[in-house]
Amino acid sequence: MRAWVLLSAVLWYLTGAGWQRSSERTGKGLIYGKPGHPVKIYVKLHHSSPILACMDFKRAKKETVDPTYSWIGPNEKPLTENNQINITKTGKLKMEDFQEALSGLYTCTLSYKTVKAETQEETVVKQRYDFMIFVNPFAPGWKGACNDSADCEDITNHNILQARDRIEEFFRSQAYIYYHDFNKTIPAMHFVDHSFQVVRMDSCRPGFGKNEGLHSNCASCCVVCSPGTFSPDVDVTCQSCVSIRVYGAKSCT
């Protein structure tokens, strides 16, 4: 996430990372698998995931005979529906209120039949699709600042830039008033247009960090720390700790 520092006030800006912008995404909001390559997806903390299709884009355009779908979660156990996980009869997966513990590798196996035209012989084909899902969090305090708005980053961005413009206008007005209304009895005050600056500061909430190597397609994102790493403070990196087996660890225990 990104923070803009304006005088002594700190407001937060988050990259609008959602899911991977590639050929796997369609206009309907579906994310398709890619045979042989895991598809990386970034979901905002406590938001819904995109809909994951247990199929690749090419297969979706073809007739699929007697398809069956099997989803495996990060704990390597079959996924079952609950208040956070929704699996449709057509193999589509969506998760609600996404949290750190839901991060990880999601694998779907599609089974379907092919029929030879000459002999009518049936063959069962199986295709595996991997989806790596990571959390991209909101900044601390976003709920209070945005009143639970889903567009928190847009609101905070607008507010900080508006504050900058108003402070700039204040100094410009003060310079005019001192120079024109006080009969030059006090030293002149000058203001250089557009000289007021805001400074960006990068930080991540505990349990999150940035990794340009692992997340090159979301290099500016604060992403949940993977197993084997942790982040105890607002640093931008996840530190190594081989004993950790969960996502989003805040200490090496």
Rank of each mutant, 00 (worst) to 15 (best):
S48H: 11
S49F: 01
P50Y: 05
L52R: 00
A53C: 03
C54T: 01
D56W: 02
K58E: 10
K61N: 03
K61V: 01
T64K: 09
V65I: 13
D66V: 05
D66S: 10
T68A: 14
S70T: 11
P74Q: 00
N75E: 00
E76F: 00
P78S: 10
L79A: 12
L79W: 14
E81A: 15
N82P: 07
I85P: 03
I85V: 12
N86T: 09
I87Q: 14
T88W: 04
K89L: 15
T90D: 14
K94C: 12
K94G: 11
M95L: 03
M95C: 04
E96R: 00
E96Y: 00
E96C: 00
D97F: 00
D97Q: 00
F98M: 06
E100W: 00
S103F: 02
S103E: 05
G104R: 03
C108N: 06
L110N: 03
S111I: 02
T114A: 04
A117C: 06
A117E: 10
T119Y: 03
T119H: 06
T119M: 03
Q120D: 07
E121A: 09
E122G: 04
T123M: 05
V124Q: 09
V125L: 03
Q127S: 13
Q127F: 06
R128A: 02
D130W: 05
D130P: 02
D130M: 06
F131A: 10
F131S: 06
I133F: 04
I133A: 13
V135D: 05
N136Q: 11
F138E: 03
F138H: 07
F138D: 05
F138R: 08
F138Y: 07
A139R: 10
P140Q: 12
P140A: 13
G141S: 09
W142E: 11
G144S: 07
G144E: 08
A145S: 11
C146L: 11
C146Y: 02
D148H: 12
D148A: 14
S149M: 13
S149W: 12
A150D: 13
A150F: 08
D151T: 12
C152S: 09
C152A: 08
T156E: 11
N157F: 04
H158L: 05
H158S: 09
N159G: 06
N159A: 11
I160F: 04
L161R: 10
A163P: 01
R164E: 05
R164L: 10
D165E: 11
E168K: 09
E169Q: 14
E169P: 06
F170H: 08
F171D: 15
Q174M: 15
Q174D: 15
